[in-house]
Amino acid sequence: MLSFPEEIVLLLLDETKGEFVPLPESVFAIVMSGAALMDLALRNRIDTDLEKLMVVDRTPLGDDILDDVLSGLAGICDKRSELEIGEALYDGALDAEEYRARALNRLIAHGILREENGRHLWVFRTRRYPVIDNAEQQEVRARLRQIVLSNEIPDPRDIVLVCLIDACALMGFVLSAQELEAATPRIEQLRKMDLIGQASLARPPRPRRSSNSPRRRCDQVRSRLLLKTSLAQHAYPVSIIRQAYDLAFGQRLRQHDAAFPASP
């Protein structure tokens, strides 16, 4: 059985093109981190309530993604008495790209994907991951249809999958437009059932939610992550602009910096 981080990477691949469906990096990072946390919860390494996340067993699982996340959480718990779900998500989200690379390598090793390097317009390097064996994707989609389009009580794994797929806005790949519209209340119901999923994979805040919802407490963490991501993406252009300014107005810029030092 695939881990949830592997599962979400696989489900994010368009099996006909072998390319990832478009998804904002910050959303992907939170979803990947949420997938790892939910996996750790189902494997009895962490537990959660409305207030906090607890590491209850530090024994490694032999999975380099889950063990890294678990070790990071344990490190935080060593320093602090309490850890909020949103903070745990933020910690895991910072390494989401690394985890995607590891998950891809494992899926290739399992014979589910293959890596295909090429060039676009003979210049730009491209990399695709065509799906060799789509049995897992088909099975997950069939299971999701069954659980979303019925009143069947889900098992914990079903709930995690619904959380992950809906957070990535991929339900449209599983259901028709009419089915999706009709099943929206059911999807909402299922998504609430996992407290990590509820906190991490929430769409913009909805009215009438409980004031004690983990989703609410996650808003600030998501904002921090978005800011960090956008700063990282814009770091290079900013440095070029700064160099251009320095060339043009060097003396005045240094005077300005001396007068208004950057806050630490």
């Binding site: 189902l42 537990d47 959660t48 009580i153 889900p154 098992d155 914990p156 990590i196």
Partner: peptide, 19 residues
């Protein structure tokens, strides 16, 4: 006096079996 996610999962599994 207290229930966590792990406790909720126990009840969920029970509800599924009962159904």
């Amino acid at each position: 006096v207290y229930i966590s996610s792990a406790g909720l999962r126990v009840l969920l599994v029970l509800a599924k079996k009962v159904q």
